[in-house]
């Protein structure tokens, strides 16, 4: 299973990307790649998973159905998380001067590839 290859492809297609990772809903990182040594998804896999679980509860209570995507914007970067099936999610971090729209699209394109590898 070449998850790294898919992550590398995604990263190289998105201008300003910092790092990307495939994480299980239990918080365990399946694979990750980073262009910046300070960005280590291994350290925060569990936190990300907790964010997604909270978002899932909120989506359901708001009557919006299942959560598909979470986008976090800080004063330094933007982090995108997208669900891969029900048990995994993929995350991508982009600099503020990066192309967020492209990042979202590339991630959407990567999801079926991950799903294929995971089944």
């Amino acid at each position: 299973m070449d998850f790294k290859k898919i992550l590398e492809e995604t990263l190289s297609n998105v201008e300003g990307s910092i790092g990307a990772g495939l994480v299980g809903m239990d918080g365990i990182v399946i694979d990750q790649i980073s262009h910046n040594s300070t960005f280590d998804i291994n350290a925060v896999g569990a936190e990300y998973s907790s964010i997604i679980k909270n978002a899932m509860r909120a989506s359901s209570n708001f009557g919006l159905g299942n959560t598909a995507e979470i986008l976090i914007t800080t004063d330094k970067a933007t982090m995108i998380m997208m669900m891969v099936g029900q048990n995994y999610f993929v995350t991508l971090a982009i600099n503020l001067d990066g192309n967020l729209g492209r990042g979202r699209l590339e991630l959407k394109k990567a999801i079926p590839k991950f799903e294929k590898e995971l089944t």
Partner: peptide, 9 residues
């Protein structure tokens, strides 16, 4: 942190 956007179905 500035914004969080949750996209659901």
């Amino acid at each position: 942190m500035q914004q969080v956007l949750v996209t659901a179905e």
